[in-house]
Amino acid sequence: MASRTAPDPARRSERARAAVLTAAAELVAEVGYGGTSIEAIAARAGVGKQTIYRWWPSKGAVVFDAFLAASEHEGSLALPDTGDLAADLRAVLRPTSDELADPGADRTFRALLAEILNDPALHAEYRTRLLDPLLEATRDRLRKAREAGQLAPGTDLDLAIELFYGPLNYRWQFRLGPLTHEHADRLVDAALRALAPPAADGGSGA
Rank of each mutant, 00 (worst) to 15 (best):
M1W: 01
A2F: 03
A6I: 02
P7M: 02
D8Y: 03
A10G: 05
R11C: 03
A16Q: 10
R17G: 07
A19H: 04
A19P: 01
A24Y: 03
A24T: 14
A25K: 11
G34C: 05
G34M: 07
G34N: 10
S37Q: 12
I38F: 11
I38G: 13
E39W: 06
E39C: 01
I41H: 13
I41G: 11
A43F: 08
R44V: 02
A45M: 08
V47Q: 04
V47I: 14
R54I: 02
P57E: 05
K59Q: 13
K59N: 13
A61I: 12
V62W: 06
V63Y: 02
V63E: 01
F67L: 00
F67D: 01
L68P: 01
S71F: 10
H73K: 08
S76C: 09
L77T: 15
L79M: 11
P80N: 04
D81G: 00
D81W: 08
G83Y: 05
D88Q: 10
R90T: 08
R90Q: 14
A91Y: 09
L93W: 10
T96V: 12
D98V: 15
L100H: 09
L100R: 11
G104N: 06
A105C: 14
D106L: 10
R110W: 08
A111W: 04
A111I: 04
L112G: 06
L113T: 12
N118A: 14
P120V: 00
P120T: 01
P120A: 06
H123V: 00
H123G: 13
Y126R: 00
R127I: 08
R127M: 13
R127S: 11
T128A: 15
P133Q: 07
L134H: 10
L134P: 01
L135D: 14
E136T: 06
E136K: 12
R139V: 07
D140I: 05
R141S: 15
K144I: 08
K144H: 13
E147K: 11
Q150W: 00
P153I: 10
G154E: 12
T155E: 01
L157H: 05
L157V: 09
L157R: 07
D158P: 00
L163M: 12
Y165V: 06
G166R: 09
G166M: 09
P167A: 10
P167C: 11
P167Q: 06
N169W: 11
Y170M: 05
R171Y: 08
R171G: 09
F174R: 12
F174P: 09
L176T: 13
L176E: 15
G177K: 04
H181Q: 04
H181C: 00
E182F: 02
H183S: 04
H183D: 03
D185A: 02
D189G: 02
L192R: 13
L192P: 02
A196S: 14
A196M: 13
P198R: 15
P198F: 11
P198N: 11
A199V: 15
A200W: 13
A200I: 13
G202L: 05
G203L: 06
G203M: 01
S204Q: 13
G205A: 06
A206I: 09
